[in-house]
């Protein structure tokens, strides 16, 4: 084995860059969060404010509502993607003509810039411009306008997220399904289990670690949605799609209320980490159950 000095030398640039771009902003936001700081206010300097920013934050209904809104959006989108992704992954485990082609094309949305996804869906849903409002009106007499109806705006964003990310869920589930051992399934069929029983008592438990990992990754991504919503609805109509990322951006930057903004950023980070950690614990214990199940 070579001297660890060389190893550390090779690792050092990576660690330094991640410390500057990852760790430093974190420490800085913790620091600024305890100050009143607005460079364009009467007092330009940072004034120590203790936990006052947080005191203001827990009573800030706009902020809390925007958190709730983001959570509802993420849960709806991710749940739909899981169901759809699972069904589509099931079909991809079978052989059929054109499978490789379909699978490749299906992955296309994953590579598209989120901001371009937003632009694309805007062109699709703009009244007078996109075919969606036109044909919904022609075929079903439905008045579809995401600039006016907030329910439709939220629903469209969920649909867009499904369009964008179901391929990801599908491909991950497919990889998981392929890696499952065959024997338990054959045995279950011999024993006369029906499809639902096989799904409920075999596929889901065996796939659990992968399902949870997917939920984990997708939730983290869905909760930080900004680009697509920014492009498609710009937070509107009203505040119906003002997700937390856009909220921070819109409230903090024009008002240059840096102390309060830092507190807000940190609280979002805190909630993300807690959620992240809970899911992580769930994944680890699911993995442990799997290992114990195999032993037992």
């Amino acid at each position: 084995m070579q001297s660890p000095r060389t190893g550390w030398g090779l690792l050092a640039p990576t660690l330094i860059i991640l410390a500057i771009t990852g760790l430093l902003p974190f420490l800085y936001v913790v620091y600024v969060g305890f100050f009143d700081w607005n460079p364009f206010a009467a007092t330009k300097d940072m004034v120590f404010a203790g936990v006052n920013n947080y005191r203001r934050l827990v009573f800030d209904n706009d902020f809390l509502q925007s958190l709730g809104r983001t959570l509802v959006f993420a849960v709806c989108a991710v749940a739909s993607e899981l169901v759809l992704g699972f069904l589509l992954a099931q079909t991809l485990t079978k052989e059929f003509p054109g499978k490789t082609f379909f699978r490749t094309v299906f992955a296309l949305p994953l590579m598209v810039a989120p901001i371009a996804v937003g632009a694309t869906w805007r062109l699709l849903t703009m009244p007078g411009l996109g075919p969606l409002p036109y044909y919904l009106d022609k075929l079903f007499g439905l008045n579809y306008n995401i600039g006016i109806f907030s329910d439709q705006a939220t629903l469209t964003l969920v649909l867009m997220d499904i369009w964008h990310w179901t391929p990801f869920v599908t491909l991950v589930f497919l990889a998981g399904l392929i890696s499952l051992p065959k024997e338990p399934f054959e045995q279950a069929q011999v024993d006369g289990a029906n499809r639902w029983q096989i799904f409920r008592y075999l596929t889901v438990p065996m796939l659990m670690p992968i399902i949870l990992t997917t939920v984990f990754i997708r939730m983290m991504d869905a909760l930080r949605i900004v680009d697509e919503a920014w492009m498609l609805t710009n937070g509107g109509p009203g505040t119906s799609t003002l997700f937390i990322g856009i909220h921070i951006w819109r409230i903090v930057f024009p008002k240059t209320d840096y102390g309060y903004g830092s507190a807000m950023s940190l609280l979002v980070l805190y909630l993300t980490i807690v959620l992240c950690w809970l899911l992580f614990v769930a994944i680890t214990s699911a993995r442990q159950h799997e290992v114990e199940g195999m032993r037992g």
Binding site: T14, G22, P25, R224, G245, Y258, S265, T272
Partner: peptide, 24 residues
């Protein structure tokens, strides 16, 4: 531990890092 730490950097929500990075 270093490996794990490098990976967790990816999970950080950009919205929470916008302001500190902008200020920095």
């Amino acid at each position: 531990n270093i490996f794990f730490w490098t990976i967790t950097n990816r999970m950080a929500p950009p919205a929470a890092f916008l302001l500190p990075l902008f200020l920095l």
